[in-house]
Design a protein around this nucleic acid. Structure first.
Lengths: 229, 229
DNA sequence: ATATTAATTTTGGTATACCTAAATTATTTT
DNA sequence: AAAATAATTTAGGTATACCAAAATTAATAT
């Protein structure tokens, strides 16, 4: 008996859709076509068209009801996690073996993630000792496509005088990441919340023994996560 | 004054065309659209259409006269060498840092060559100490896009009792390369021509102290090159 | 409940890069 | 120099993935 691994090939574009749907539906809610369009920098109409197509395939990647948004099917989720695993392994490996910095790796990984083979994935993963997180602290799905559960809490939710360690920065913008690095806000750094002033939307924290003030705008609030010590 | 590096982006498909045209025109002759089609596994008509398009651009990549074939313009040659440099650096690097064997690297490199940045090219090149040849002994164009001249001669042209070293194998087929490796016919191996029998198209050579017979078919004749000792 | 506004979907189009079949041009043979 | 053959080119068509504008549907406010 022969097992056909029939790994059908998805276009780069479809892989990008799946990746974004995965992120938008992590909270359990369906993703709207508009939200998809925004994230992918395409017109809403394009997203709608693609969802109709993906949902009407013989073995659909998404479940889609008009005006209700999309969710991934089991198959779609597997495909999305495969791409995310590629992306994060590549980022880790660009940093570890080619000396890239964490603010440079995203765009390179965006391109490479679509073209590497399973062989390549396996080789870089084992060369790095099967890392669990990428350079931004994002969890890397395992080879059998399980996403590790992440128990970090948002930096912005720390109470005064709580101490924690920076675990994950959910961002890819080069300048923003460079900015955080300059502050000392890097993965693994120890941080202590000093004062959380909800009036002026500023949080004062202690980093490498120095006081820093960070604005609690959308840039930070849902992007920096910590592990309480 | 600002220098705009206007590196326009070519599609993967166009890059593949240029690479093939480069190889077909290394002998100085123009490449026919049919030859292009054969190498690229497309219909002759598709090659013709693409040549018309590339030749009629504002700054054309090829020079094309109907029924006379195509040649690269200076601009086209630069673009072709850039892709070839990417391909060969990637092959070298897959072998050196990820333990790939020489018969596995071609297809992976075919995909990666189109998506890596100049930054990436530079990093892997310097990580390897700017290698001059890829794992098949093919010369790697320099960073300023000059192809090193290669003085090897065909293995099939060795005279009886001449000794040489295997310098370059111009092939990408996995099984063929595995076959050569099994014979001991690998880059750098020392070889001595014993008898060149033009009757039965067989050449007898000595490799690692053992006698081997190789058929002088199209598979070998223009594919294995040596440096005479 | 109706009107207004916002979100979504449909429609008709674009560009790329391929294809097959028919027509043309070039080359070779007689 | 014709005729036959081979190579090339043109013409018309496909699929993917995008777009803008119009039409529709859903949500919100009066």
């Amino acid at each position: 008996m022969v097992t056909t691994t029939m790994t059908e090939t998805l276009t780069d574009s479809v892989q990008d859709y799946l990746k974004v749907i995965y992120e938008l539906t992590e909270n359990g809610e369906a993703a709207s076509t508009t939200a998809l369009a925004t994230r992918l920098h395409i017109a809403p109409a394009s997203a709608t068209g693609m969802m109709q197509k993906l949902a009407s395939a013989k073995a659909p990647l998404v479940e889609y009801r008009k005006h209700q948004g999309v969710k991934l099917t089991v198959k779609g989720k597997r495909a999305a996690l495969e791409v995310i695993r590629h992306h994060r392994l590549i980022e880790a490996w660009l940093v570890q073996t080619l000396g890239y910095s964490w603010d440079e790796v995203h765009s390179e990984a965006e391109k490479l993630e679509h073209v590497i083979s399973e062989e390549f994935e396996e080789r870089i993963a084992s060369a790095m000792g099967n890392p669990l997180r990428d350079p931004h602290g994002e969890p890397i799905p395992s080879a059998d496509l399980v996403m590790p559960k992440d128990q970090g809490i948002a930096l912005a939710n720390l109470k005064s005088n709580q101490e924690a360690r920076i675990q994950r920065v959910h961002a890819q913008d080069t300048d923003f990441l460079k900015h955080l690095e300059k502050l000392g806000l890097i993965i693994g750094a120890r941080v202590k919340a000093l004062e959380v002033s909800r009036y002026d939307q500023v949080m004062r924290i202690q980093l490498r023994g120095r006081k820093e003030a960070i604005a609690l705008g959308p840039a930070i609030t849902n992007r920096v996560f910590v592990e309480i010590l």
